[in-house]
């Protein structure tokens, strides 16, 4: 096909988007919502996965020591913990150390706020215990919680289990949403195509009589669908950027969250910028093109 024809067809497609503003806008909105829902679900999933793998990598158990124990009791507790089969190493982490590391990671404003509680450290002494076999984690933590002088035992893997089930729910919802939205997208694109085929029926009729190929007749509609898809993709990308950054900042600003999960437990938007943009554009263009290809064969009887 000649370059001038390509220009002509693309021009037709663009004009058609404008000519059927209402339908184009409706398709645009539906595609935008669909892309956003799917995109945000996927981003949520990959971040939860990252958190999970971060936690799972830590075979660490925190044993919180009862307040006011004698030094002997604390030492004998350490021996008792070491006696458990699955335990690898045990290290003492005093309430003062915990306090300092917490203050160190705080912003200035938070530090100022915490000045008032100085001298009254609310944190407990703990033992950081690493286990040999993560599989036997539950059994090991149970044993430890029955030991004398233990206030509580916190295994981060318990939190991972919770996250895994959240992620699984997310995945099921995401798949259901994807299927539903693809169907909705195809229906709405099909209607848009029908409207533009209708508004151009005279032209199409003449095109058939003068020997335009089917491809030539259909391409402008496919371009129209693709353009709408791409516009929706761009809008979805921009919205995703804002939403993602918002959530990310919220997360980073929440000390308790990242002290459990670790400061690098989320992907920064910068690091996922390119794949997200490419995924949106490809998905938008493909849904737009496929949708119109299906519906043009239906409405452009050639």
């Amino acid at each position: 096909m000649k370059l001038s024809s390509v220009n002509y067809l693309v021009g037709k497609g663009i004009k058609s988007v404008w000519k059927n503003k209402m339908m184009s806008f409706a398709s645009f909105c539906i595609m935008l919502v669909s892309l956003l829902m799917v995109g945000l679900s996927v981003l949520a999933s990959i971040n939860i996965n990252k958190i999970i793998s971060g936690i799972e990598g830590k075979n660490e158990v925190i044993v919180v020591i009862k307040d006011g124990l004698t030094d002997e009791a604390v030492t004998s507790l350490e021996t008792n913990i070491k006696d458990i089969n699955n335990v690898d190493t045990v290290s003492f982490y005093s309430k003062e150390e915990a306090w300092e590391s917490m203050i160190k990671n705080m912003s200035q404003a938070e530090k100022d706020l915490f000045q008032y509680t100085d001298g009254d450290n609310p944190l407990p002494d703990t033992y950081k215990v690493s286990v040999k076999d993560i599989e036997k984690m539950a059994e090991t933590t149970n044993r430890m919680s029955t030991l004398e002088g233990v206030e509580s035992v916190k295994a981060s893997s318990e939190f991972a289990d919770v996250l895994i089930s959240i992620r699984n729910i997310f995945s099921v919802i995401a798949i259901a949403v994807v299927i539903a939205l693809i169907i909705v997208c195809l229906v709405i694109i099909s209607n848009t195509t029908r409207t533009s085929v209708f508004s151009r029926r005279k032209e199409i009729n003449i095109m058939k009589y003068v020997g335009a190929t089917n491809k030539f007749i259909k391409i402008p509609f496919q371009i129209e669908g693709t353009i709408i898809g791409l516009l929706a993709a761009v809008a979805a990308f921009i919205l995703t950027m804002f939403v993602y950054r918002g959530v990310f900042n919220l997360f980073q600003g929440n000390y308790q969250l990242w002290s459990i999960l670790g400061i690098n437990s989320l992907y920064s938007f910068k690091s996922i910028f390119l794949p997200v943009a490419v995924a949106y554009l490809v998905a938008g263009a493909v849904i737009g093109a496929i949708g119109t290809t299906i519906s043009t064969s239906k409405y452009v009887k050639v």
Binding site: K2, S4, E203, V210, G211, I217
Partner: peptide, 11 residues
């Protein structure tokens, strides 16, 4: 002109 365009005639 439309007729010639749709049969991909040279500009």
């Amino acid at each position: 002109a439309f007729v010639l365009r749709v049969i991909d005639a040279p500009k």
